[in-house]
């Protein structure tokens, strides 16, 4: 019966735009229970696929990922809690399987390394800014000095000792 049911449903779905939509959303081979699938998805997004290590268990198409999803589905159906399912995975594959490993001595650098780097960066920024302020304070002319500098510039002789070519203006250099 199943053999002709699916093509029939596909054909029917083509007739109505709404039907086509539903078909597209549910193309994956899902088990009957939607709540189970939702939990499976939530759990497997927290887990690493050990074959394709940068993919979640939810996203991976690896053979082992398929097996593990089937295993997790079985555990959900047995009424196991999320924590128990996590334990099942960690006891077999280690903390590495979790995308959010627990805080312990071996993972301290992983958890707090970024904060440490941020602190070092802030410290360096703070020191650089303070140093710059000091330089600015030192190199700014006082009102008196500014007046003298202006007087000197305005009174600049038209032909200084080491005179440049006559057509060049001896403007103030920055």
């Amino acid at each position: 019966m199943k053999r002709w049911l699916l093509p029939l449903l596909c054909a029917l779905s083509l007739l109505s735009p709404l039907g086509a939509n539903v078909q597209a959303n549910e193309a994956a081979p899902l088990a009957a229970n939607e709540a189970v699938e939702k939990r499976l998805l939530a759990i497997s997004e927290e887990l690493r696929c050990l074959v394709c290590q940068n993919e979640t268990l939810a996203a991976s198409q690896a053979e082992l990922a398929n097996d593990l999803r089937r295993e997790i589905r079985g555990l959900i159906n047995e009424g196991k809690s999320d924590a128990e399912i996590m334990d099942f995975m960690v006891s077999r594959y280690g903390d590495f399987v979790r995308y959010r490993p627990p805080v312990k001595s071996t993972t301290l650098l992983l958890w707090f390394g970024p904060v440490l780097l941020l602190l070092i960066g802030l410290l360096a920024l703070f020191r650089t800014l303070r140093q710059r302020n000091r330089l600015i304070a030192r190199d700014t002319l006082s009102a008196d000095e500014a007046q003298r500098a202006n007087a000197l510039l305005n009174a600049a002789p038209t032909t200084p000792a080491n005179a440049p070519a006559p057509h060049e203006s001896a403007g103030p250099t920055p």
Partner: peptide, 12 residues
């Protein structure tokens, strides 16, 4: 079916 493999943490 690879179930024992899962218990032993076989991933390759």
């Amino acid at each position: 079916d690879g179930r024992v493999g899962i218990d032993y943490g076989v991933y390759g």
